[in-house]
Nucleic acid binder design. Structure first.
Length: 668
DNA sequence: ATTAGGG
DNA sequence: CCCTAAT
């Protein structure tokens, strides 16, 4: 049972530039609520909330608050650790630099998440704007998503809006709560900072060109010191800096796990912090300007190291690397982003094409589960190009095809022990995925996304097709065909039947393109006539990646379903008309010689279904409608050749009887 | 390898 | 589309 707590935090310590008093007094205090799990509030949540609030107040110098600290603890949530320092730490800790780096980043989240937020004293949390911290080599600073995906900045936090998340290739995910809630942008989302600046500037006048900001997150203490009764929600309040915060002024002397000993404050973009541990009872009024003194990063680092050496951290150290797979191939980790929704870092499929993608998923909050998905395999990609196609063009074709597949036509499914987990609202814990799971049990699937990969051929019939086209979320009477991206046909060098002229061939190809489910697969520049991205293995999965190895051998894979197009049907009918129903090999050679995926068995089967289709009522037919004219020809040809066959049968049998009778007579 | 037919 | 018996 998760309790929602109601906490009230006051932010104080704004470095507010001169603002007309009138304007400032207009908004002394503002507050908003953020529904947060008080007990398990994630550092990321907190951070994002604070940062977002700040920004929504009009702060514009930087979109993100990249670091925050629990006093006395290293609390960078940012890869701002210089390489030099990394190596120092490495020596100190005797660990690999990476591990150390991650540990540093884990530190805060561990503290925060291992302990209820309410256990953290109001003055123990500090936020520092990222500008004030030495910037890592993270290009794309700003609110663009780039800094979220830069490899060097994996753990940096920023403001996450649906927009920049999307553009970074990441997607907000939510482990619990209703879908509605998940989709809702949180309070911290800041989309149009420029706009906001304008409006907020005038109305609140709270913050303008502040280039450094410091927050204190305070636990809610009413002035009397009594604990708030209602703690159902986390409440965040922004308090103007020249107004002492009632929430933060209380000097708690309670002994906490995390004794503040270090304060960080920023003035004009420079990191300042006391060189000595400050008192446990910081005066909120002081700390803004007066009490802070300049301190460089090393200074801070020294303190941290000192603290580290002096005591054990009140949290259990975690294994940071228990990657599941030790596959040797693949591309290095992809984009990372932090999801404030659940406090996890998630790397997502980017749009960069590669047949083998490696995806890292980090869960850094408590109960962390670290997953590494190595090498998503795009199972089958059917491409047919002409022999005269250049290698470069082929590359481009493949690239675009992969792009088309990865670029949104896919969704990811999760398999646990072979069973598909469909409930997106379940947490990993509820599902049974934990870090000590055998990772073999966990698998992912790439599936066609029915909402993105549109297609008439997705639709079993006309009716649902229209629904699909008119409605983004169609309710189809039939289950969508699982085999989505498929299209196709190819350039074929038919042993052209009499009236399958060049014109017909062209129309055939074009009509195939028209029926292409994914328009993105049409590649104008490419020389390929057609692309056939081919799902494989599972009915509704393009790929199943059980992390270890694919069980099903390739040979046992069911072929991809590729419905016949009208033009194919026409070619088939024409060939059968000429050759009859008993010579499927000839039919194949004549009309489908270059269509490698159509065997004579396929053609025979298709003819069978065509006959059946022609006999049933149009209402009962499914799939791409076959022109009645063709069906009529099917029936006609079928009748004719059946008759011929019967005749043939009669003949041969009569011949047989003749001979047998003859032999009986002549050979008594 | 093909054909024919059931599933 | 698959499977397979029968050619």
């Amino acid at each position: 049972m998760v309790l929602q707590k109601r906490l009230e935090y006051g932010f104080s310590g704004y470095q507010v530039p001169p603002i007309p008093r009138a304007a400032r007094s207009a908004r002394r205090r503002r507050s908003f609520e953020s529904k947060t799990n008080g007990n398990q509030m994630y550092a990321f949540d907190l951070l994002a909330t604070v940062a977002g609030k700040l920004l929504s107040e009009g702060e514009s110098s930087s979109p993100s608050v990249d670091s925050f600290s629990l006093k006395g603890q290293l609390a960078l949530v940012q890869d701002s650790v210089g390489r030099q320092e990394k190596s120092e730490e490495k020596l100190l800790e005797g660990k690999s630099g990476d591990q150390d780096f991650y540990e540093r980043n884990f530190l805060f989240t561990d503290i925060v998440t291992d302990n209820p937020i309410s256990d953290i004293r109001s003055d123990e949390l500090e936020f520092a704007q990222n500008d004030s911290i030495s910037k890592p080599n993270c290009p794309g600073k700003g609110d663009s998503a780039e800094h979220l995906v830069n490899d060097d900045c994996k753990l940096r936090l920023g403001i996450f809006t649906p927009a920049n998340l999307e553009s970074s290739g990441c997607r907000l995910s939510c482990n619990s709560g209703s879908d509605e809630e998940c989709r809702k942008p949180r309070n911290f989302s800041v989309t149009n900072r420029a706009d906001m600046l304008d409006s907020q500037h005038l109305t609140s006048g709270l913050v303008s060109s502040v280039d450094s900001v410091k927050f204190l997150i305070c636990r809610d203490h009413s002035p009397s010191g009594s604990a708030p009764v209602n703690r159902e929600n986390v409440k965040l309040a922004i308090i103007d800096d020249d107004e002492s915060s009632p929430a933060c002024t209380e000097s708690s002397t309670r002994t906490k796990k995390f004794r503040p000993s270090l304060r960080v404050s920023n003035i004009h973009g420079q990191k300042l912090l006391s060189s000595k541990p400050c008192k446990a009872t910081p005066n909120v009024k002081d700390h803004d300007r007066a009490v802070t003194e300049r301190c460089n990063y090393l200074n801070r680092k020294r303190i941290i190291k000192h603290q580290r050496s002096l005591r054990d951290y009140p949290f259990k150290k975690r294994k940071f690397y228990d990657f599941v797979s030790n596959s040797d191939e693949g591309i290095c980790c992809d984009r990372m982003c932090a999801s404030p929704e659940n406090g996890t870092n998630i790397s997502a499929l980017g749009s960069r094409p590669s047949l083998q993608r490696e995806v890292l998923i980090w869960h850094v909050a408590f109960g962390s589960v670290k997953l590494k998905i190595k090498s998503f395999r795009v199972p089958e990609l059917f491409i047919e190009v002409q022999e005269t196609t250049t290698i470069g063009s082929l590359k481009k074709t493949v690239l675009e095809a992969v792009n088309a597949i990865l670029g949104g036509g896919l969704r990811v499914g999760v398999l646990l022990q072979g069973k598909k987990i469909r409930d997106d609202t379940q947490t990993l814990l509820q599902t049974g995925i934990s870090h000590d799971n055998k990772m073999d049990a966990l698998g992912f699937t790439l599936e066609p996304n029915p909402h993105i990969a549109p297609s008439s051929q997705l639709c079993p019939d006309d009716h649902s097709c229209q629904l699909l086209h008119n409605n983004p979320r169609p309710v189809t009477r039939y289950p969508l065909s699982p085999n989505v991206p498929r299209t196709a046909i190819r350039d074929r060098n038919l042993d052209t039947p009499p009236d399958l002229s060049e014109n017909n061939l062209n129309s055939l190809v074009e009509s195939d393109h028209d029926s292409a489910p994914d328009s993105s697969l049409k590649i104008p520049g490419a020389q390929s006539k057609a692309l056939v991205p081919v799902p494989s293995i599972e009915r509704d999965a393009l790929a199943v990646v059980p992390l270890r190895k694919c069980k099903r051998s390739d040979s046992s894979q069911r072929r991809i379903r590729r419905p016949f197009t009208v033009t194919e049907v026409e070619a088939l009918v024409q060939a059968v008309e000429k050759l009859g129903t008993g010579r499927w090999r000839d039919v194949k050679l004549r009309a489908f010689d270059s269509a490698k995926h159509r065997t004579y068995v396929d053609l025979k089967d298709k003819w069978k279904t065509l006959v059946h289709t022609a006999r049933i009522s149009p209402q009962q037919r499914r799939g791409e409608p076959v022109p009645q004219e063709l069906l009529d020809r099917v029936l006609t040809a079928h009748a004719y050749w059946s008759q011929q066959q019967a005749k043939q049968h009669l003949k041969s049998s009569s011949i047989l009887t003749f001979f047998s009778e003859n032999s009986r007579c002549t050979n008594p």
